[in-house]
Design a protein around this nucleic acid. Structure first.
Lengths: 145, 145
DNA sequence: AATCTAATTGATAATTTATTTCATTAAGGT
DNA sequence: ACCTTAATGAAATAAATTATCAATTAGATT
């Protein structure tokens, strides 16, 4: 549910003492509504449609902030090529990335929770979140090669 | 075993038809011998000690190539902060990253293999490799906060 | 509703990072 | 030893990211 995603993100911002500004709302809205996994350029272009005055420094700052707050996730498609997605409350998934065409597919099964607490015990780290990305060829690129 | 790591990387280069040049050897050696997980700056500085004439374009090109060939792995410590490690034959592990001090700790348990083939069946992707990174606070940073 | 204060913004400049270009070098096959 | 072509390194160029700072605005306080 998009509305929940937006609300959760906004509340997290306020909870941590950050102001809910126009640019931030626009960025959150754009991310929540985008089904694909846009990169920075796409986000910038997309936001400008709704909020033409936004500067690129603000976008950098805001994405950095959302990542910091663990509201946003970055998916590494290639070296120095990140794509973004807003975290949805109650949802947990990971990504398959095509090494050829950079298509991203989500998959729901996550086996990390089974070993998470053991790793915490052994390493004494307190784990806050995790990312798993699997790389390979999508069906189309398998056919092409 | 460092020698095996170096040999495996070199053989993979040759196998794919790339030349085994001085700069490439120097970079592979440096990466194989470094116990920590160096970033680009550290690698550049480290290589220059052994191979002073190396240019930075060559380092960029070589790291890109090694990543492409799946010999090298990049660990995302923060947005736009990558650290590198050469893959060791027969070894498989993942990383814990401290969100505060960026310390990296390896852990051996990987639960992905159990679900990998199911994901391949369901998604029709052919998976070549995967990366898992867990983020949290290291013991020291927990104590500080 | 008007006021206040500090966080936030956006334009620009400055900086850092990454890529392209191209003449020169050297790897590896013959 | 030679030959062909990939690879290198220096420099130029381009692209990405961050810092600066006056102007704006969110949200608390009256």
């Amino acid at each position: 549910m998009i509305k929940n995603t937006i609300r959760a993100a906004q509340e997290e911002l306020k909870r941590k003492g950050y102001k809910l500004t126009g640019p931030r709302k626009a960025i959150i809205n754009y991310l929540a509504e985008s089904q694909e996994h846009p990169d920075m350029q796409q986000i910038f272009a997309g936001i400008r449609a709704e909020y033409p005055s936004i500067g690129m420094a603000t976008l950098y700052r805001t994405l950095g902030l959302l990542l910091e707050l663990d509201i946003l996730r970055a998916i590494t498609v290639k070296k120095n090529q990140l794509r973004y997605e807003l975290k949805k409350p109650g949802d947990h998934h990971h990504h398959l990335v095509c090494t050829e065409c950079s298509q991203i597919l989500e998959f729901g099964s996550c086996s990390f929770k089974h070993i998470s607490s053991e790793i915490e015990t052994v390493t004494r780290y307190s784990i806050e979140y995790h990312n798993l990305e699997a790389y390979g060829l999508c069906p189309q690129c398998q056919a092409t090669s």
